[in-house]
Amino acid sequence: MQPSFPALRGAAEPRRYRRFAGPPTSFIVITVAAIQVVGTLISARHQDSARPLDIAAMLLLLAGPAALAFRRRAPLAMFPVAFLATAGYLALGYAWGPIALSLALSIVLTAAAGLRWQAWLGAGIAAGAVVVGAAVSGDPNWPLRASAGVAWAAILVLLGQAFRRRGERFAEYRRRREAAQKAERDEYRLTLARDIHDVVAHSLSMINVQASVALHVGADDPEKLRPALEAIKAASKESLTEVRQLLGVLREDAPLVPAAKPTLAGLPALAKNAELGGLRVTLQDNSDHQLIGPAQQEAAYRIIQEALTNVGRHSGASSAVVRLGQTGSGPTAGALTVTVDDDGGGMRGALPGNGLTGMKERAGAMGGTLTVRELQPGLRVEAALPIHLEGNRP
């Protein structure tokens, strides 16, 4: 019987997603500084009337890009510094060039940082300066230049807000992806714990019961000692094989030998193993195995296995009845019903353990239900597992 978590074999460490926050700040500062300085030097060669570039001009050309270095630590400082550097450069009459690049980027980065109103205020100040400058320049087309400046200021803010929304959508996608990965890893761990319990606990419980029987009858009736030892050998061999398969799933470098999953066809052998421990088991199977998918068969098998294990270990029962059937009407229409009754002492006020929790989880994973109720005497475990016909016989 193979553990029921094949996906765990491919479950590697979760991928680490880093939010893309644009180019590094140092790259932006150096690039903008190079464009402003080199572009202005080239442009100044064709402007004879402009004031020659000196050390003060170079400092002002570098001050704007330097303000962009505060995009992470103090984004509010970007626009004021860039605006003063740009306004001072133009007011001193230096050659025109790409001096406004750092000012434009300061508006974009301010909006991208989430400082919406500050970005609009800065854009308004810049647009106002453009309008005043165009009006006093004496250019007859100054209204057109002023309108273009105002439009570009608004476009810069909208562009920064678009970058901001894109970053927020990416962050939300990353949070959802990480939450989904965490849920998937939790489900893997839960499945692993459940399968280890079902695979190992059943076999060890059988070994314990048979060892007790062997100790009890060994001295008085040696003939009964052999069946008990054979049962111990078979249970320990099966448990060892399944534990190796579990380790093969956990270790990606270990080959995983294919093996058949437990099916309803294995219930007679399961009942026989329980009888070797002194529990009389009656199996009543009225289900059509060909209409029941492999996942439902495995869940039903594991539920019956765990129920019989609990009966043998805790209830003190002498007999158990296992019934399987199919419903065709009512709220569980098209469902496989599994019922395990025993004549033991019931729960006796004990809290549900890992076995009962695992049975409920298996039923829930199939979209079904599992209930436990007291009998007089004994206990009833009843599960309803919806039958999915996809891939089965029509």
Rank of each mutant, 00 (worst) to 15 (best):
M1R: 08
Q2Y: 04
P3Y: 11
P3S: 13
S4H: 11
A7D: 15
R16D: 14
R16G: 07
F20K: 09
P23S: 07
P24Q: 07
T25F: 02
S26V: 15
S26I: 13
S26C: 08
T31K: 01
G39K: 03
T40E: 03
A50H: 06
A50T: 03
R51Y: 08
P52T: 13
L53S: 02
M58S: 05
M58P: 00
A66E: 05
L68G: 01
L68Y: 00
L68F: 02
P80Q: 04
A82Y: 04
A82M: 00
G88K: 04
G93A: 05
Y94T: 04
L101S: 01
S106H: 02
S106T: 05
I107D: 03
T110R: 06
A111M: 02
A112G: 11
A113H: 03
L115F: 08
W120Q: 00
L121N: 06
G122S: 09
V136P: 04
V136W: 13
S137G: 13
N141P: 00
R145L: 12
S147Q: 08
A151Q: 10
A151L: 14
A154C: 14
L159F: 14
R166G: 14
R166V: 11
E168M: 13
A171Q: 14
Y173K: 13
Y173S: 15
R176H: 11
A179G: 06
A179E: 10
A179N: 08
A180P: 01
K182R: 13
R185C: 01
L190G: 10
L190E: 05
I196G: 07
V199P: 01
A201L: 09
H202C: 07
H202M: 12
S205F: 01
N208E: 15
Q210K: 09
A211Q: 12
A211P: 02
V213G: 02
L215A: 15
H216L: 12
V217C: 06
V217I: 14
G218L: 10
D221M: 08
P222E: 07
R226P: 05
P227Q: 01
A235K: 01
S236G: 14
V243E: 01
R244Q: 14
L247E: 12
D253H: 12
D253V: 08
L264N: 08
A265D: 15
L267A: 06
L267T: 05
A269P: 05
A271S: 13
A271N: 09
N273I: 00
N273C: 04
T282A: 12
L283C: 10
D285I: 03
N286R: 12
S287F: 04
H289D: 08
H289K: 12
L291F: 03
I292T: 03
P294S: 10
A295N: 10
R302I: 07
I303Y: 05
I304A: 05
E306H: 06
G312S: 15
R313V: 11
A317N: 04
S319Y: 07
V321I: 12
V322Y: 00
R323N: 09
R323V: 10
L324C: 04
T332E: 11
A333W: 05
G345E: 12
R348F: 03
P352E: 15
G355W: 01
L356M: 12
T357I: 14
G364N: 11
T369K: 07
L370K: 02
T371R: 13
V372E: 02
L375C: 03
P377A: 06
P377E: 03
R380N: 12
V381I: 15
E382M: 14
E382S: 14
A383I: 07
A384M: 08
L385C: 09
P386K: 08
N392F: 05
P394L: 15
